[in-house]
Design a protein around this nucleic acid. Sequence first.
DNA 1: GGTAGGATGGGCT
DNA 2: GCCCATCCTACCC
Length: 193
Amino acid sequence: MAFGPILPRSFYCRSAPDVARELLGKVLVHGRAAGIIVESEAYLGAGDQAAHSARGVTPRTGVIFGPPGHAYVYFIYGMYECLNLVCEPAGTAGCVLIRALEPVAGLDLMRSRRPAARKDEEIASGPAKLTLALGITRAHNGADVTRGKLVVREALRPVSFEIEATPRIGISQAAELPLRFLIRGNRFVSGKR
DNA sequence: GGTAGGATGGGCT
DNA sequence: GCCCATCCTACCC
């Protein structure tokens, strides 16, 4: 299945909330599998105590301070991996967690990678579910998402939708900020409200 | 429909 | 040693 052009690096070179909103409706592609981004969360640079980058550059968080348009993949709870897209210019921290996809290509492949999913809505409706479905792992940490097998593309046709903003999921610090964005009414968003 | 508890290991104090 | 940007299963309405 074909999609629109790959998003250029300039797309990512702005604030995390702006990028998080603009990513909704875009298509995350890895090889033959792809899904429309329907839910995202912004993690800011300085001052955001919920962000992994809050305590500065470490072996894990260096990618977040690097150039925009790269993947930050982290390992969590001993068994899951989650995908972020780095934004802001190099030297400034900021990234967007991809939280849910609406599968649109390679459904057979994605179903085989998600045996626990009883319905298509469960294939990629969560940050760790979608990395499993697309085959994204820590090996992609630092990968350039403006070229290669893991990229984000424009949708084939523009679709209009309303954006809803809510607090971020699963955090304890800065838990009140409305930095989670989702396509209102989309049934592929993650279960939690 | 709902939720409680467990799995499982890296990162950082 | 404690904390996690999670998911799944079992069990209970």
